[in-house]
Simulated assay, not measured.
Amino acid sequence: MAELQIGDTAPDFTLPRDGGGTVSLNGHLGKPVVLYFYPKDDTSGCTTEAKDFSSLLPQFNAAGAVVVGLSPDSVKAHDKFTAKHGLSVILASDEEKSALQAYGVWKEKSMYGKTYMGVERTTFLIGKDGKIAAIWPKVKVAGHAEAVLKAVQAL
């Protein structure tokens, strides 16, 4: 599958979310959506990223944006992660990896000489029209949420 590009229509998804219920991209049409993909609940980088997005959520909301974190973890894991760290962002669970694959972030990775499949930390900013407005591949967590907020405010 070709990599998604700025200007492409973002693939829709409907997934279970923390706290019960589901979240779908089409359910937020007309608002900018920050969709950040991360590897695993409660690991250091993912915790920092989720806390950064949560702490800036009032500014994202003021800009009219919705922030959704997405990983292959279960809803139960998301609920524990949210409760432990006081997170306020929506966390979607993609155990089937359908959205991860649709967005091209389920990739071969390597660590300590072993290769495995995992999530490449990537953020997509999806405009009100459902088209991709910005992409941050291979995200470095420090300062990332602030950079995404600036992009949302500039839409």
Rank of each mutant, 00 (worst) to 15 (best):
P72D: 01
A134F: 09
A50R: 04
E120W: 04
A92I: 10
G45M: 08
G113M: 07
L100H: 13
L56A: 01
D73I: 02
F60H: 13
A63K: 09
D73C: 09
D52L: 11
K109L: 13
A92C: 10
V66S: 12
K131R: 15
E95T: 15
A83V: 07
F81C: 10
L87R: 07
G64W: 03
G45S: 09
T115W: 02
G45T: 03
E108N: 12
A63L: 07
A92G: 12
L100D: 11
E95G: 14
D52V: 00
S98Q: 15
K76N: 12
Y116H: 09
V119I: 14
E108Q: 14
A77M: 10
A63H: 00
V105A: 07
T48S: 15
K97E: 15
D79Q: 03
A83S: 15
H78M: 05
F53P: 00
M111W: 13
I132R: 01
A50F: 06
S88R: 15
Y116W: 14
E95W: 06
G104M: 00
V68N: 05
T47E: 05
H78I: 00
K107W: 02
C46N: 09
I132Q: 01
G118I: 05
T122K: 05
D79A: 00
G118K: 10
Q59F: 02
S44E: 14
G113S: 10
V68Q: 04
A65D: 06
I135A: 01
V68M: 04
V67E: 12
S55K: 15
L56K: 12
K114M: 15
K128M: 01
A62F: 02
E49H: 00
G118S: 03
K84C: 06
Q101I: 14
L100P: 08
G130F: 13
M117K: 13
S88M: 00
A63V: 05
K131L: 05
L125P: 03
L57D: 01
T115A: 10
E96G: 14
I135V: 15
Y116G: 07
L125K: 09
V119F: 10
D94Y: 13
G69F: 02
E108R: 13
V67K: 12
V75G: 07
G86T: 05
T123C: 02
D129N: 05
Y103V: 09
F81V: 13
Y112C: 07
S88T: 15
E95S: 14
E95K: 13
P72S: 13
R121A: 02
T82A: 14
V67L: 08
G64S: 11
L125C: 04
A102F: 03
D52C: 02
M117V: 06
S93V: 10
S93M: 01
L125I: 07
L125H: 10
L57R: 08
T82F: 03
T122W: 04
F81K: 11
P72C: 02
K128C: 07
E95P: 11
E95F: 09
E108C: 01
S98Y: 05
D129T: 04
M111H: 13
V119S: 06
S98H: 14
F60I: 11
F124S: 04
S55H: 14
